[in-house]
Design a protein around this nucleic acid. Sequence first.
DNA 1: TGAATATTTAAACAAATTATTCATTTATTT
DNA 2: AAATAAATGAATAATTTGTTTAAATATTCA
Lengths: 193, 193
Amino acid sequence: MRKKESTEKIFSASLRVFATYGYKKTTVEDIARELNMTKGNLYLYVKDKEDLYRKTVEFALLRWQDYVRGAIEDKADPRDKFLIMCHKAVEYLSIDDDFRSILIHDPEIFPMFTDNDPYEKINNNSVNMIKKILKDGIAKGVFRPVGITAMSKAIFSIYKMFIIRMYIRSEESHVRSMFEQTLDLITNGLFKQ
Amino acid sequence: MRKKESTEKIFSASLRVFATYGYKKTTVEDIARELNMTKGNLYLYVKDKEDLYRKTVEFALLRWQDYVRGAIEDKADPRDKFLIMCHKAVEYLSIDDDFRSILIHDPEIFPMFTDNDPYEKINNNSVNMIKKILKDGIAKGVFRPVGITAMSKAIFSIYKMFIIRMYIRSEESHVRSMFEQTLDLITNGLFKQ
DNA sequence: TGAATATTTAAACAAATTATTCATTTATTT
DNA sequence: AAATAAATGAATAATTTGTTTAAATATTCA
């Protein structure tokens, strides 16, 4: 197993285990076992358990972002892009059990924009994706000329809040309909009439 | 909390936690926390962690047996009793997540009839329930005169096997239809024509 | 009430588990 | 075959966990 090729294997296995037991209850050996390797070898890839966890969460966030990006890249209309992005971001939770579980175990993965967000860099990918859509939409004259940076952060905050709420209390279907209504509110405030 | 009244609370909380994490990963403190009490206090009720686990499983098995017994006690026809018992025993897993989980974590809960079965006494409740039904059915002339003890054990073995199989590999719907077919086989071999 | 009894706590300790390191071995590349 | 990279497994340090215990608090009932 060459180093370059194996990192994906390592973090997807690690995600699986962390998602199952949570940070505290998974041992480094649990993950090594899942990978059919020894603990010692794992420490070639990460500094310590916390580093392993952080990199695992980053891996999970990137996979989620790839899914969303892939779903909108061929769309031309900024309004389409925006709506599909919002829906796909939430729908992804239905198809990735591990991602969903890790969000429930650790609500800090999606922190509000605080001073030291460990995942700031990666969350900025999402914010930048939104930024581009807004910019494009404004340029094409289909969005009102809103403040791009602040609005992007606000929108990201809203749907990450829904993502967490929706799956911590997934029984409550009214959360989903609230999401739809909020989305309607955002877009109808955003679109030109 | 008086001692007499609290044992049920203790073991149902304990069941919940053991079912969530499995024996190894749950700590005595996890259970104490769930009960809003300290570890030290728990040791007034049980000898050690293993004793806590054993009593918890016994509690779970008794709850399951009560459910089945309750469903058949008002039935008169031994054939009804038999069929309902078999179905209810399996269906119970759908309504008690903790029971189902603990079975998956610990397949030894339903051991085959080996020399030292820690739950022998409680599993015998089930066997005796079957025995009574068979005896009654034979007396009333609706069952063939089979060997009651051996047949009861055989029947219990069959449905406990299905219970475990069904929920370890619950995706596979063919397991359920196999159960129905096996039940059909048992009853049509058992009933007089 | 208040003495007797039952329940709960919190701290302490020993034993077990876990994270981490490292010298050595095995595999791969050049 | 030499050099480099990857993996091992055993050893150690740090932390967690199971269990005990003395002291505190609550409950019972004479």
